[in-house]
Design a protein around this nucleic acid. Structure first.
Length: 970
RNA sequence: GCCGAAGUGGCGGAACUGGUAGACGCGCUGGAUUCAAAAUCCAGUGAUGGCAACAUCGUGCGGGUUCGAUUCCCGCCUUCGGUACCA
């Protein structure tokens, strides 16, 4: 009987569903283990072979943990709010909820066809009102909280209010953005609007006017992590800086805890480092500089207070608030010009112009805080308003950017480090001793920093400060398809909705576009106000809101009175094993840690980290097939411009390269075409370019399914798309059209997507599961290689055949031979070790080795085959269930015990020692296991081969590595 | 520039704390089976020399530690990922 993967897999998937095999509940007597995948955004394209990689790994671990006695929580859901569904809605008018629902159904079906052991009863969808009700609820908790730096925890806003009533805000240690300072009396005298504004500056979600990343194409703002190199992460549209009033999340309050918490996490170093860099803690000092003839001060941040005597000028960011008042009349024009220019530059322009030095003098001077020297104040866009104070003290001898600026504007470069060579550039090393620095002279840098810090604080002209690169996160999106923000405005004062009014459901709108006035789409909705007529916030939440806490909802997905019950969260606590891409390092993974810490502060959670251990799966890339379309370059008669015209001639890689390299000219091409298609063909069909230099070929991505190895099926290509119907080709003499192969990210537009459905149909889910693991370490990026799956498929067939004699199921009850038992226990030891250390790829090899060994030994003993089926079930669950049933079991293999290996079978009767002289292996000696060291040594030295190698020399040393090698040093 | 990861046959990759490098799979070569093909099975497969036993070389490059290094240390090169006028 052959291995019929189609019927077997269908049968067991149905069986699992009907019997609800993977339903999970709290079992207090059992230890819990929570295995979670990053839930997907259900895109219209469905899953490709890259998606399941991580899901397979986590499913193997979940199934393995079940077999080893854990109560495993292994859920799946959908991050179903997002831009693509909304863009589709704008184009087609179809409600995003509908598109999303359709996509989710497809995803769920695909996931089920892979045989994952998810408890589908726990599925969550972030766009479901019963879910986002609690996302809104958490928003309100954040809104009602402030961060107490002294207690190092979030606290309720009411406590802050009563504190203000007693002492004002001058003594409190809190994370805030409040410019005002007031005492209790003043607080009491404030009107409602002022109080609200002050409180907003303390709340963990707050409204603020800030510079944000505005993406005009998408019509919305983006968080820092959603911008890559000045372009939007989704869509790749330009992003500009814009000042806007937006909802913000005070994540900076948690900067230190987010940093320190990394220590105890079992995550990869690279992701932890990414978070550390993103948080970007740097220790230094705030220093205040007086402005000449004025009372106010310029505050700067520096990590090198020791170089204070090396300051020769000041630089402000062009947007700095003091610029307007500092500029003198004679410099007004140039400064205004410069500010204007800088404001028009996008983030991207700034990045590309990094090397250029620009700036202008304001006409004003600052005074050195210690020696009162006059320091000219410049503005330049190399100083950023968003970091530190938006102003710097320039130390050209110690900072390359300051050095460049000093050179360009002919400013002095005083040296403050003994022996530093600053003729060709700044000395940025933190070494040497101070000179020309008054009381710091002779001190090494580290000591000088401390001395200066104390001095500054003593004289009250500066103070120790810790600066973070991390910014508060923008929380509003001018979009429809997101969680509505449960806030309404009473006379401009933002008011929290009552919990009982949640969920605040998304309203119906006529169009998914902003209003004429530029308000977000929600403003189009009729009745988007409270019963009293107060307008409701029209912005929605960003994509990361729902994904920041979903792991906890899985613990109690149907709870209607709270996001999750204490009972459930106290049992499941947090995720033991999280699988997902490293690309979320500075987004989802950081926000999620932030919300978890906040919910921990409020007492809702027993743990303050969401994910204990994490595995970052690599991307499976596609192999794109590229051919070249020949272009004719010509000079347009009308405007004299050089232009190119497309042809229907397609070139193989070989020809395209030669054309590109100039090895072929127009004459060669004409000859080749005529040779192939008949004399005069090229001329007749206008395929002769007068000027071949101009863009001779365009790269075209071809569907990888039209390619076998590197060869294009030209007939299929002609039928692929109507525009290729009349294609003609030039290719190698051996009649093979060789394409150009490139490894890229899988995407629809590159026609390099490999769909798992077809592979499952052809080879089965078990084969696909095993193969994706076999491909290599899960963490690594790797191109999809279609050919290797055959090998794994062959192995499963052989495994199946192990249980069958001809068409009959045949397992014998006789004793297994000792050799087979040894092989089996060696296998068990290795497999359990490898799964525990997440080496999923080597386990597949072990399956193959054991299968081959059993086939060779013709071993069909139940004694071995039965536990073998259990061991293989995490990888190939369907075939395992089928064989388990055939072995006469009524229960599912899911609930069996993972077989333990027995060390007594692993002992070798004889040990083969490679005997080496000076590290070089000369012969092998077989001795009985357990032979004592000194006896072994004697045997080795008396061996005739040893005598030959020693040639009368005396061995200096004999090294015996137990069970491994004997090394004789001569 | 800085931070992180990685460089092993024709290819994907093994070698977990230093101990016979190349497991396992793909591909390739030869053979069996077949009218033939597919499928399956058997054998071989790092390089060089040799009929062979065997010898020499070999884990990006150059050094070092060690009886012994893919593994540890120092200096480079390359690729990938992150990040950036961060003061």
């Amino acid at each position: 009987m052959n291995y019929e993967h189609r019927s077997i897999e269908k049968k067991w998937q149905k069986n699992w569903e009907e019997k609800n095999t993977f339903r999970t509940e709290i079992l207090p007597e059992k230890k819990k283990y929570y295995v979670l995948d990053m839930f997907p955004y259900p895109s219209g394209a469905g899953l490709h072979v890259g998606h399941p990689l991580g899901y397979i790994a986590s499913d193997i671990l979940a199934r393995y943990k079940r077999l080893t006695g854990f109560n495993v929580l292994h859920p799946m859901g959908f991050d179903s709010f997002g831009l693509p569904a909304e863009q589709y809605a704008i184009q087609t008018g179809q409600h995003p909820a509908k598109t999303t629902e359709k996509n989710i159904d497809r995803y769920r079906e695909q996931l089920k066809s892979l045989g994952f052991s998810y408890d589908w009863e726990r599925e969550v969808q972030t766009s479901d009102p019963s879910y986002y009700r609690w996302t809104q609820w958490i928003f309100l908790q954040l809104f009602d909280s402030w961060y107490d730096k002294k207690a190092n925890a979030a606290r309720h806003i009411d406590e802050l209010i009563s504190f203000f009533e007693k002492e004002g805000n001058t003594t409190i240690q809190a994370s805030h953005s409040c410019q005002l300072s007031f005492d209790a009396e003043q607080w009491k005298s404030f009107d409602e609007k002022t109080r609200s504004d002050v409180l907003l500056d303390y709340r963990l979600t707050y409204l603020a006017e800030t510079v944000v990343n505005w993406c005009p194409e998408l019509g919305t703002v983006l968080a820092n992590d959603e911008v890559k190199e000045g372009l939007s992460e989704r869509g790749g549209y330009p992003v500009v800086q814009k000042k806007m009033r937006q909802w913000m999340m005070r994540i900076t309050a948690y900067a230190d805890r987010l940093l320190d918490g990394l220590e105890k996490l079992d995550w990869s170093d690279s992701v932890k480092d990414m978070q550390r860099n993103w948080i970007g803690r740097s220790e230094g000092a705030s220093v205040f500089f007086e402005i000449e003839k004025r009372k106010d001060l310029i505050e700067v941040f520096t990590t090198r207070p020791d170089t204070l005597f090396g300051v020769s000028f000041m630089v402000l960011a062009p947007e700095h608030p003091l610029v307007g008042s500092l500029v003198t009349s004679e410099h007004k024009e140039s400064v205004l010009n410069y500010v204007e220019q800088a404001s028009r530059k996008s983030e991207r322009d700034r990045i590309s112009e990094v090397k250029k030095v620009s700036g202008v003098f304001t006409g004003s001077y600052a005074l050195h805080p210690l020696n009162k020297e006059k320091l000219p104040i410049y503005i330049s866009d190399y100083v950023l308003l968003g970091y530190g104070t938006g102003a710097i003290m320039a130390v050209p001898s110690g900072d390359q950017r300051d050095w460049n600026f000093a050179r360009a504007f002919d400013l002095p470069i005083p040296n403050v480090i003994e022996g530093a060579d600053i003729s060709e550039g700044a000395d940025e090393s933190k070494g040497g001793r101070l000179i020309n620095s008054d009381f710091l002279n002779g001190m090494p840098v580290e000591k000088a920093i401390k001395a200066m810090l104390s001095h500054l604080e003593e004289k009250n002209i500066g103070l120790r400060k810790i600066q973070y690169r991390l910014r508060d996160a923008v929380f509003s999106r001018q979009r429809y398809w997101g969680e509505p923000i449960p806030i309404y405005f009473n006379d401009g004062i933002p008011m929290a909705m009552d919990e009982s009014e949640l969920p605040l459901e998304l309203p119906e709108v006529d169009k998914y576009l902003p209003t004429k006035e530029g308000d977000p789409p929600l403003a189009r909705a009729e009745g988007w106000h409270t019963p009293e007529g107060f307008p409701i916030e029209a912005n929605t939440m960003p994509g990361w809101a729902g994904s920041s806490w979903y792991l906890f909802r899985y613990m109690d997905p149907t709870n209607t009175i709270e996001p999750f019950s204490q009972k459930n969260v106290n049992y499941w606590r947090n995720v033991d094993f999280y699988v997902g891409g490293a690309e979320h390092a500075t987004g989802h993974l950081l926000y999620s840690r932030f919300w978890t810490k906040f919910l921990y502060d409020t007492g809702k959670l027993p743990e303050d980290e969401p994910f204990k251990k994490m595995l970052n799966q690599g991307m499976i890339q596609g192999k794109s097939a590229i051919i070249h379309r020949y272009n004719i370059g010509y000079i347009d008669r009308e405007d004299g411009q050089i232009k190119t015209r497309e042809t229907n001639l397609y070139l193989s890689n070989h020809f395209a390269r030669n054309l590109q390299d100039g090895k072929y000219g127009p004459k060669d091409l004409e000859r080749l075409i005529d040779e192939k298609y008949g004399k005069g063909y090229a001329r007749e069909h206008h395929l002769i370019s007068p000027n071949i230099e101009i863009a001779p070929a365009t790269r075209i991505h071809v569907d990888v399914n039209l390619v076998d190895g590197e060869e294009l099926d030209v007939i299929a290509f002609k039928q692929w798309q109507p525009r290729f119907k009349d294609a003609i080709f030039l290719f190698e003499e051996d009649e093979k059209f060789i394409i150009l192969c490139e490894v890229e990210k899988m995407s629809k537009t590159k026609f390099n997507v490999i769909n798992p459905d077809e592979l499952i149909e052809r080879y089965g889910a078990d084969s696909l599961r095993c193969y994706e693991m076999f491909l290599g370490p899960v963490e690594q990026h790797k191109p999809w290689d279609q050919k290797g799956i055959e090998g794994v498929s062959r192995f499963l067939k052989r495994f199946w055949a192990l249980f069958h004699e001809g068409t009959d199921f045949m397992v014998l009850d006789d004793k297994a031979p000792l050799e087979a038992k040894k092989a089996f226990h060696k296998f068990l030891k290795k497999v359990s070790e490898d799964i525990e250390r997440l080496s999923f790829n080597t386990v597949v090899s072990e399956f193959m080795i054991l299968t081959n060994a059993l086939v060779a030994m013709k071993c069909r003993s139940r004694e071995i085959l039965e536990p073998f089926v259990i061991a293989i079930s995490p990888y190939a669950p369907h075939i395992a269930e089928e064989l388990w049933e055939k072995l006469g079991h009524k229960s599912s293999v899911t609930f069996e015990k993972f077989p333990l290996h027995d060390d007594s079978y692993l002992k070798e009767d004889n040990v083969k020692y490679p005997i080496s002289f000076n590290g070089k292996v000369r012969f092998t000696l077989e001795v009985e296991s357990g032979t004592a060291g000194d006896l072994l040594q004697k045997m080795v030295l008396e061996h005739e081969d040893s005598q030959r190698w020693l040639e009368g020399k005396n061995p200096k040393k004999v090294i015996i590595v137990p069970n491994k090698i004997v090394n004789i040093v001569v």
